[in-house]
């Protein structure tokens, strides 16, 4: 039995679909943030899998995945600050209530 690149890519595809579905279904802003985390993880898995199977002796893909993780952490911090402000203003984090900028 041998694991191939296709195994890991299929996990990545399914995780991407789960993330996109999460982003569509949730109206809770934090739920949408969770969907984004899933999508970022799917991308990072792609990078690491291609690195492990394609480029002997190099770790470029792992470095990229490290950047993805760090950016996801920073993005979560900024997004939560925005969400808390949204909650202070609207007493809810339903994204459909954020219509103040409508003309």
């Amino acid at each position: 039995m041998v694991l191939t690149l296709g195994h890991f890519l299929m996990v990545s595809v399914l995780l991407l679909a789960a993330g996109v579905i999460t982003m569509i279904v949730k109206r809770n802003a934090i739920g949408i943030l969770m969907g984004i985390e899933l999508i970022l993880n799917a991308g990072a898995l792609n990078l690491v899998a291609f690195n492990a199977f394609g480029f002997g002796g190099k770790i470029d893909g792992q470095i990229f995945a490290l950047f993805v993780i760090v950016i996801a952490a920073a993005e979560a911090a900024v997004a939560l600050a925005i969400i808390l402000n949204f909650y202070n203003n609207f007493a809810s984090i339903d994204v459909e209530k954020g219509t103040s900028l409508k003309g």
Partner: peptide
């Protein structure tokens, strides 16, 4: 990540994501 021989990345995933980002989300 461990199966793909990216041990350092797996450890960072556990520490930063599970220990940091997820806790931040739960606080939110």
């Amino acid at each position: 990540y461990f199966l793909l021989h990216a041990e350092y990345l797996a450890a960072v995933q556990l520490v930063v994501y599970v220990g940091g980002t997820l806790i931040l989300i739960v606080f939110g």
